[in-house]
């Protein structure tokens, strides 16, 4: 009995050990750990500096230390290293990126946004986790791997938050739009960007049901809160939150969509006409729905419900297609007569 158990345990642990040593190269990783940490700090610092420049802010030693959560001594060290590498140059109290530093920063940002796009399109990982996972991944992927990833997901132009993805050559267009806080009462706007940092604010925005492409109407604003309408529902945000939402003004009111019903609102036997699919439905899922004929103008009829009440079978262009509520919530419809 003892003999058997101990042999078994020994056997299994040997297999596990060999397996993990081979797979993850633990020993080598051990040595690389220190280098990795340094690389992460360098890349994070470059990213921070780049963002400062992009948003036309000045950054100091202290703000770097603050954003990377390191002491100012460590930050000073880091700056020294970056200067030696030729990544940054000092201009009085602040720092600017050299061409080399900017290229490096853009490569990290490209990887980060590609990975977010990948997570959004190809996996079912929750929206609130994309950013933090990409924060880790951006330091691990080589630029070659990043290019392969880009090819695999169809060379996307924007990340799921609406940020443009820099090209491999480091070209990035200027962001359009204004913060939500700059809209006036009665203005219409379309959300073009949701800032994903800090993540506490981002999670609140997601929880409010905001997404890229959504149309909003500002009802009222004061110093304490903004009142606006999104998808026919009232939303309230503190200005400190609302400034992380970027919108594009919609001056032409004909572009403004009315509030629509959702496909999931159809009762059995009812018909509706598809108006569009929410931008929150992305990647493969979106393409699949489009391929099935859920394009603007298609007449859809709810035919059967499954035993559990979800999914529902819809008649779409002559075929019976079962769709879960989570997706039919993302498809907007109007009545046939409208």
């Amino acid at each position: 009995m003892n003999l058997f158990l101990s042999t078994l345990i020994l056997f299994i642990s040997t297999i596990l050990l060999v397996f993990f040593l081979k797979k993850n190269k633990i020993l080598i990783q051990w040595k690389n750990r220190k280098n990795d940490k340094r690389r992460i700090k360098i890349e994070d610092a470059l990213k921070y500096l780049y963002n400062c420049e992009y948003n036309k802010l000045t950054c100091s030693l202290n703000s770097i230390a603050g954003s990377l959560s390191i002491t100012s001594n460590e930050a000073a060290n880091l700056i020294k290293i970056l200067e030696e590498m030729g990544m940054i140059a000092t201009a009085g109290e602040s720092f600017i990126l050299t061409a080399e530093g900017k290229r490096y920063a853009l490569r990290v940002i490209r990887t980060h946004r590609l990975w977010e796009k990948y997570l959004a399109d190809e996996t079912s990982i929750s929206e609130t986790d994309w950013h933090s996972l990409a924060e880790i991944k951006e330091h691990k992927i080589t630029s070659e791997e990043a290019e392969n990833l880009s090819a695999q997901i169809g060379n996307p132009l924007f990340d799921p938050h609406g940020d443009p993805i820099p090209t491999a050559e480091g070209i990035i267009p200027r962001r359009k739009g204004i913060p939500l806080t700059q809209l006036e009462k009665g203005d219409f706007g379309k959300i073009v960007h949701l800032e994903d940092e800090p993540s506490a604010i981002y999670q609140q925005l997601v929880a409010e049901g905001l997404y890229i492409g959504q149309q909003v109407k500002l009802i009222d604003k004061n110093n304490e809160r903004l009142h606006f309408e999104a998808n026919n529902e009232s939303c309230f945000l503190a200005p400190s939150f609302a400034k992380n939402v970027t919108v594009e003004m919609l001056p032409d009111l004909s572009l403004v969509k009315k509030s629509f019903k959702r496909l999931s609102d159809l009762k059995l036997g009812e018909k509706g006409v598809v108006v569009g699919i929410s931008k929150a439905c992305r990647g493969k899922q979106r393409r699949r729905l489009l391929d099935l004929g859920l394009v603007p103008g298609s007449v859809v009829k709810a035919e059967i419900k499954s035993v559990g009440g979800d999914p529902t079978g819809f008649n779409i262009r002559g075929a019976l297609i079962a769709i879960r509520k989570k997706q039919s919530d993302q498809i907007f419809i109007k009545n046939e007569s409208e």
């Binding site: 997901i153 169809g154 493969k284 393409r287 699949r288 391929d291 099935l292």
Partner: peptide
């Protein structure tokens, strides 16, 4: 397939 445009 339903289409030739997607990435499957």
């Amino acid at each position: 397939t339903y289409s030739l445009l997607s990435t499957s």
